[in-house]
């Protein structure tokens, strides 16, 4: 785990190297925060948090849904929604009929996520989906601010306004000309979206958001 965390390089990768255990101590103390639109008169800022070094887990393929059901985890219905799993302190995002992304409800407490992952890895059944390595191949940003929907409208073709897209909705679309999954989580208690996209393009995403903010 330490090797993987140290090897990750997202836009603020040098800072990641300061936390080689891959588990930041708290959201405020170590979370990397970048302002893409500064505060203006009457309008709050729009900020991007880089959450890439936090734990997450993805399974997909035949048997993934049955495996989750066998663990008494209720599946989000319909596809493209997030459902909290209170008993395990996890958030389950459904991206397809047999495609799931699991996030910790509390970013700094990955134990429940690690436990689920361990259960899945040690399960010997033939059909349980396969590990989609979301923690390795997807960057994870959170963008938030009162006007975040208007800001993202410059680069995302889907209407993300709060009245059109309720909390826990998922949109699989394009942002900054890249395939991107947006999950409305409002995790800072502000209107905000988690962004999941190709980790190799994380620098490009951050540059694009900054340029849009400056335009």
């Amino acid at each position: 785990m330490a090797v993987l965390a140290a090897g990750r390089r997202t836009p603020l990768g040098d800072l990641y190297a300061e936390h080689p255990d891959g588990v930041p101590s708290s959201i405020d103390a170590t979370l990397v925060r970048t302002t893409v639109v500064p505060e203006r008169s009457g309008e709050g800022p729009i900020e991007v948090l880089d959450l890439t070094r936090y734990a997450r887990f993805g399974i997909k393929g035949k048997g993934a849904s049955d495996w989750l059901r066998s663990k008494a985890i209720p599946l989000p219905e319909p596809v493209n929604t997030l459902a909290p799993v209170a008993s395990r302190k996890l958030d389950l995002v459904r991206l397809g009929a047999e495609d799931y992304l699991v996030l910790p409800q509390s970013l700094g407490e990955p134990a429940s996520l690690a436990a689920l992952r361990s259960e899945w890895e040690s399960d010997g059944r033939e059909r349980k989906g396969f590990n989609s390595w979301r923690e390795e191949v997807w960057a994870w940003f959170h963008i938030h601010g009162a006007n975040v929907a208007d800001f993202l409208a410059k680069t995302c073709p889907v209407d993300l306004n709060a009245d059109r897209l309720p909390l826990r909705s998922v949109v699989q679309t394009r942002v900054a000309q890249m395939d991107c999954i947006l999950v409305r989580t409002d995790r800072t208690n502000d209107h905000g979206f988690d962004l999941f996209f190709d980790v190799a393009s994380a620098n490009f995403m951050m540059s694009s958001l900054k340029e849009l903010g400056a335009a």
Partner: peptide
Amino acid sequence: MKIMNCPLNGPRNISE
């Protein structure tokens, strides 16, 4: 932009 209706995701730009 031409719009196509995805059975899973709804109406989207054809570039998707």
